[in-house]
Design a protein around this nucleic acid. Structure first.
Lengths: 201, 201
DNA sequence: GTCTATAGGCAGATAGAC
DNA sequence: GTCTATCTGCCTATAGAC
């Protein structure tokens, strides 16, 4: 096998790990090769071997993040029986990201959207598209089963959920705590889950 | 009088106008003195005469924006009789900003929060604080008058509104149109305004 | 108030040795 | 794969003439 260390990823994925955290905390344009290199104890030139340019690094960052997010959504769909608990689990992802002092990677990149290379923009747009698709499916099934209730279409409800969660992460920073995301996640669930469908109350 | 041109602001406020638009579209860290100077047809050195450093420029940007926002809120409170229409007018501010291809200045700066000078962070935090205060007051009055209905506290509802609108602007960029903010603004109003309180339907 | 000129630093990126 | 060394360009900022 070509693996060098047991239990640790290769250099390429370690670069992505470090870069991802830096982007989520500081933004893509305020994350430099020098930052990553310093943290990893290697040189900038070594980074360029793995990712020729910043655009390639950024694109890999988004596609890996989107793939991992989709994996998490599949796990939620498999683990949780009813739609109401799947919605709770979905919101919990956002809460946990913020607790690690990070913004959603694609939420951060959405703010920087106008300055991103085209390949990254497409990957970011794709993330939100897939995200909405999954939510629309969840909402449709929940409505049919009677475990979720909402006005308007599943598409509109899905956009509200994404907007509220992404916005909650965004404004949590100046607030300096997680009260906004906690409150928003709680309100989304309590508004969409009918009283009879809740575990306690 | 010290005014140079009728109907036009002085250089200082013209700098702020240009810088503000650049920040709302590209972000504070991706807006440079060179960008502003080129657009105004003056040199970078002239900018430094009006604003010694970028931190001072940024702080002026936020405090002016926050003051103008408060003015708009006062106009809404004076013009619109009932709370339901004030909420509509509040949402309309966000929609109009996005239609000009801008993000909320403080929403953008919230994304860049970790990289901002301290003076700017405080000004941004203050914007959201004042914003929430105004909404809490609106929601409280609306609930008392019966023109607005919502679960939880006015504070929680206010945070949901801000998060949803800021998030809608954010994700609208990758979506490439205003469908998200339009949908979110519509949903917020229709959820908070009881059917009997609406003008038509 | 605005200019020219320039300093000093950091960005992304490349060449070539090992 | 990782290194040293270097390039070019842009950034914020300053000095001093006009």
């Amino acid at each position: 096998m070509a693996e060098q260390r047991t239990g640790a990823g290769d250099t390429r994925s370690e670069i992505l790990d470090v870069a991802e955290r830096l982007v989520q905390r500081r933004g893509f344009n305020d994350m430099s090769y020098a930052d990553i290199a310093a943290e990893m104890g290697i040189t900038k030139a070594a980074l360029h071997y793995h990712f020729p340019g910043k655009a390639e690094l950024g694109e890999s960052l988004v596609t890996r993040y989107a793939a991992r997010f989709q994996d998490a959504l599949r796990v939620i769909a498999a683990d949780q029986a009813d739609a109401a608990r799947q919605l709770e689990a979905y919101c919990a992802i956002y809460v946990s990201v913020l607790r690690d002092k990070r913004l959603c990677l694609c939420g951060m990149l959405a703010a920087e959207y106008n300055t991103l290379p085209l390949s990254m923009r497409e990957a970011v747009a794709n993330f939100f598209e897939e995200n909405e698709k999954w939510l629309v499916d969840l909402l449709s099934r929940g409505r049919s089963a009677g475990t979720l209730t909402f006005n308007d279409s599943p598409e509109q409800a899905a956009r509200m959920i994404v907007a509220a969660l992404e916005g909650a992460m965004l404004v949590s920073r100046p607030y300096g705590n997680t009260s906004v995301i906690d409150s928003v996640a709680g309100q989304l669930v309590s508004e969409l889950v009918p009283r009879t469908g809740r575990r306690r109350q």
